[in-house]
Design a binder for these strands. Structure first.
Length: 332
DNA sequence: AACTAACTCAACA
DNA sequence: TGTTGAGTTAGTT
């Protein structure tokens, strides 16, 4: 019932203009308000005023009626969609990259795949590609939470793969996808170790390039859909899909699953399925490879102890731990 | 006010 | 494609 209301509120097919994006009352009703984005205030009035700002959207004739404040109850569906695409999604680039990588079955993506994911999910980014794509590259290079995984020598294509660092877990635990609670930054020594790991991996020690094994999942999916908050093609902006795909699992379901040690396997699988196996049983924590029994994994325990309350997560699609990057790992 | 995260532009390899 | 730096804006403490 609650989810159904959310779907209605965010459904792009809804004829109510206020439903095109999150309305401010909805956001502000959360216990942890979303940090406002100067380029994406989601109140309907401000959306239209945004036209007067230095909007990167080209000023076509089509938009004149809107910039003149004529967007009204008689507006058309095309106007809705255009307006939807005009508004920058309330996510930082780091969040967008994380979403993209998390959405892949292999747990890693090329730069182009990341571009495509973002453009497919967020119409806003079909414009001004040079600007935001530069920012994407900048963020990939700058942030330690993203790991560059070189291609296998015999694997065709351009560019490296990018994956999420296992220790970057709860970057958005403050409830905002715009601003992380804390930057995930490796110390110098860790950076060097990570560089070594990436170097080793490029020579196949971690079997990164044979492709994921059949049935491979980057993180536990049986109970956790890839995008709980639902970056659905027709809904986007973090809206739960209408399908039955999103059934909030009970925390007990998660606990039992992660206590099996599968979370440890998922660490390894994010960086190639045989990371764990090739090291004779271990996991990647930060940049260190540990040899411990999977079930006695500090990260696992920490994760299990920090499972979110899913009943509350359903209330607000912008609430923090709604995509699995935040659920999969808990930094210790 | 100071600090920090994020964004943008740009230069360069 | 990837890295790095500078400058700016804005949120947090």
């Amino acid at each position: 019932m609650v989810m159904e209301n959310l779907h209605r509120k965010f459904d792009m097919n809804d004829e109510n203009p206020a439903c095109m994006l999150s309305d401010s009352s909805f956001l502000h009703s959360t216990s942890r308000p979303e940090v406002p984005d100067r380029s994406c205030d989601t109140s309907s009035e401000d959306i239209y005023q945004q036209k007067n700002d230095s909007s990167p959207i080209n000023s076509s004739d089509e938009e004149d009626d809107e910039s003149n404040g004529q967007f009204s109850g008689t507006s058309t569906m095309s106007q809705h969609k255009r307006r939807f695409a005009d508004v920058k999604p309330p996510y930082s680039y780091i969040a967008l990259i994380t979403m993209a990588i998390e959405s892949s079955t292999s747990g890693m993506m090329t730069l182009n795949e990341i571009y495509s994911f973002i453009m497919n999910r967020f119409p806003y980014f079909k414009e001004n590609q040079q600007r935001w794509q530069n920012s994407i590259r900048h963020n990939l290079s700058l942030n330690d939470c993203f790991l560059k995984i070189p291609r296998a020598p015999g694997r065709p294509g351009k560019g490296n793969y990018w994956a999420l660092h296992p220790g970057c877990g709860d970057m958005f635990g403050n409830g905002s996808f715009l601003r992380r609670a804390k930057r995930f930054k490796l110390k110098r020594q860790q950076q060097e170790e990570q560089a070594h790991i990436q170097h080793v991996s490029s020579y196949g020690h971690f079997n990164l390039y044979g492709g994921p094994p059949s049935g491979y999942k980057p993180y536990p999916l049986p109970a956790l859909p890839s995008f709980p908050q639902g970056l659905h093609q027709t809904q986007q902006y973090g809206l739960p899909p209408k399908s039955e795909a999103w059934n909030a699992p009970s925390t007990s379901a998660y606990s039992s699953y992660y206590n099996t040690g599968n979370i440890t396997n998922s660490f390894g699988s994010s960086f190639g399925s045989s990371l764990t196996g090739s090291l004779g049983g271990g996991y990647l924590s930060g940049t260190n490879v540990h040899s411990v029994p999977p079930s006695n994994n500090a990260l696992t325990n920490s994760f299990t102890n920090n499972l979110p309350n899913y009943s509350s997560l359903q209330q607000n699609p912008y609430c923090a731990p709604q995509y699995p990057g935040q659920l999969r790992l808990q930094a210790t």
